[in-house]
Structures are given as C-alpha cells and as structure tokens.
C-alpha cells in the first residue's frame, strides 16, 4: 500500500512552547487515520503544517510524494480540508459559497452544477442551496463544509474534529458519507477527534500528548497493549468474587473483574471454572487506552 502522507521529525514551537516535537509517522493510501489528543496536544498545529498554512521549524512533510513547503500547488488539488469551525461565508447562500470555492479548482458552469447536485444528494442538502449559510443549524453547516472539502474529489480528506457538537444523526450521516467515499474512491481520511468511538473505527491511531507521540498502532494493538480486559460475572455472590483475589467492581446485577489481558482472563476462568457459569469477556475500549497512555480522560472535546 502506498504511503500517501509521510512525516519525519516534524518540530514546531511558538516561543517557548514546543507544540510539536519530533513527530514521525506515515499514512497509507485509503486508510482512516486518527489523531487523538487533548486540546493543545499539537493535533491542529500538525494539520496546519500538513495543509501548508503554518511553516514548520524542522522536519519533512510529504503528501502524495510532494514536499508541502515547495510543492503545495500540486498538493492543494489532492487534499480537502474540513476545519474545526466553518470557514465559508455566512452571508452568502450555500450555492454561492460552493460556486466561489469550486471556481478555485477550475470547476465552473455545467461541471459545477453536476458536482453540486451529486454532493447535494450525497449529503442531503438540496433544500438548503438557496439559504444563507449563516442561517443554517450547526449540523447543516457541517454538511456544507464537507461538501466544500469534497468539491474537487480529493484523494485525502482531512477532518479536524469534524463532529464536535453535532447531533448523532448528522454524525451518522457524515460517517456514512466518508465510509462510502473510502470504499468507492479509495479516499484516505486523516481525522482528529475527541470521540473515542470514532477513533475506534480507524485503521491506525496516533495518540499525541504535549506535542509528542505517546502511543501508536491499530485500535486492537493499542487495546491489547494499553487496556486490559473485563470479565463481567453474573449470578454469583460477592463473597465468591472475593475468593478470586482480583480487583472488581460491583454492578447492579453483576460484578466486573479487571484482568491484564485475555490470556489472564482465560487462565482465571479455567482455574475457577465452578464460579464462571454466566459471564462475558470484554476488551478495554479506546477511553481506557487513552487514559492509560496519557493519564488524562477525553470526553466530547474536553479534558477531564
């Protein structure tokens, strides 16, 4: 699989603050790549450098084989960016906004109308075309932001916290569209998010902490490495659970026992088979991984 984004030893400081420190990673073509981190971890700074908006201090950023600093003209036609906040013109209608942006890529006239109708159908905003962007709800605006990023059919879609503050229905729609485009067009998606369930669907995850890579891997490998398993045990007395000598948590009608990994869980079950009549083993989730890696909790955009 091609390396569509390559970042090597990337550094960026603002005065004394080291926003990004020696960051190196690759993104493969067609994958969903997730960047996790609390506010200030360096995610948006990295994206700004990736999009040619911010000058790096040192290191190398290559997109589709082109150096960002010297060949951004070539890169700009291959990337579509959904910024954290809408950067479209609030007083203009949706159609005018998309027309003005499409023309930047040479998409005009009938070509534009065709692309507009495709995107309006895909993102379900045909009824919003004549409305001023500023009058739309947050979810509606987000759909237009995504349409703008997809106007020129980019190879890479960069999503900077795209679903923060969105209702579940719009989040679902957004991900359905992104997944469809990934399947049909082999589009690569570079995502930063605060939502762990979104990161859990990624092909590869990097967790940033204070501008450095704190952990990286597939969701499974991260869970295996940083989050233990949980055995939920039903229909048993607390005294019996205590006999296991493991850390546990009492639920309404069950007990949840923490084990370091699946092998340990299996060992525990086999050695106390009489107690394990009704149970389930669940792997730790990305929240547990994040907490284990950074010592911090993430919940919908804020550090806890």
């Amino acid at each position: 699989m091609d390396h569509i984004i390559e970042i090597e030893h990337l550094c960026k400081s603002f005065g004394d603050i080291k926003a990004v420190q020696d960051l190196s990673f690759i993104v493969k073509k067609g994958e969903l790549f997730a960047f996790l981190g609390i506010n200030g971890a360096g995610k948006s700074t990295t994206i700004s450098m990736l999009c040619g908006q911010l000058k790096k201090d040192s290191g190398k950023i290559s997109v589709c084989g082109n150096d960002v600093e010297h060949n951004f003209d070539k890169i700009s036609r291959k990337i579509g960016v959904v910024f954290q906040n809408s950067v479209l013109d609030a007083p203009l209608t949706v159609r005018d906004n998309l027309r003005s942006r499409a023309s930047l890529y040479g998409i005009t006239g009938k070509k534009f109308e065709k692309r507009l109708s495709e995107l309006a159908e895909l993102l379900d905003f045909s009824d919003l075309l004549s409305r001023p962007l500023g009058k739309l709800s947050g979810g509606q605006k987000r759909r237009i932001d995504i349409a703008r990023a997809l106007l020129h059919e980019p190879e890479i879609l960069i999503l900077d916290e795209p679903t923060t503050g969105l209702d579940p229905q719009t989040r679902r729609l957004l991900w359905d569209v992104v997944n469809t485009l990934r399947k049909e067009n082999q589009m690569t998606v570079f995502l930063t998010t605060h939502y762990m369930e979104e990161a859990a669907d990624a092909d590869y995850i990097i967790i940033l902490d204070s501008g450095k890579i704190a952990a990286k891997g597939t969701p499974l490998s991260l869970k295996n490495e940083y989050a233990g398993d949980f055995i939920t045990l039903y229909g048993i007395e607390e005294a019996s659970v205590k006999q296991l000598g493991m850390e546990y948590e009492a639920l309404r009608d069950a007990f949840r026992i923490s084990v370091p990994n699946t092998a340990k869980a299996t060992e525990l079950i086999l050695s106390h088979s009489s107690l394990f009549k009704d149970y389930e083993i669940i792997k730790g989730n990305m929240d547990d991984v994040f907490l284990a890696v950074t010592g911090k909790k993430l919940a919908g955009g804020s550090e806890k």
Binding site: G52, Q53, S76, R77, V81, N85, V87, L88, D89, Y105
Partner: peptide, 12 residues
C-alpha cells in the same frame, strides 16, 4: 473570520 484558511488550502 479565518475564511482565508479556506483559500490557502486551495490552488489559488
């Protein structure tokens, strides 16, 4: 308004 960012990522 940071709308300029949208132009900066385009080929213009």
């Amino acid at each position: 308004n940071k709308n300029i960012n949208d132009f900066k990522v385009s080929p213009v």
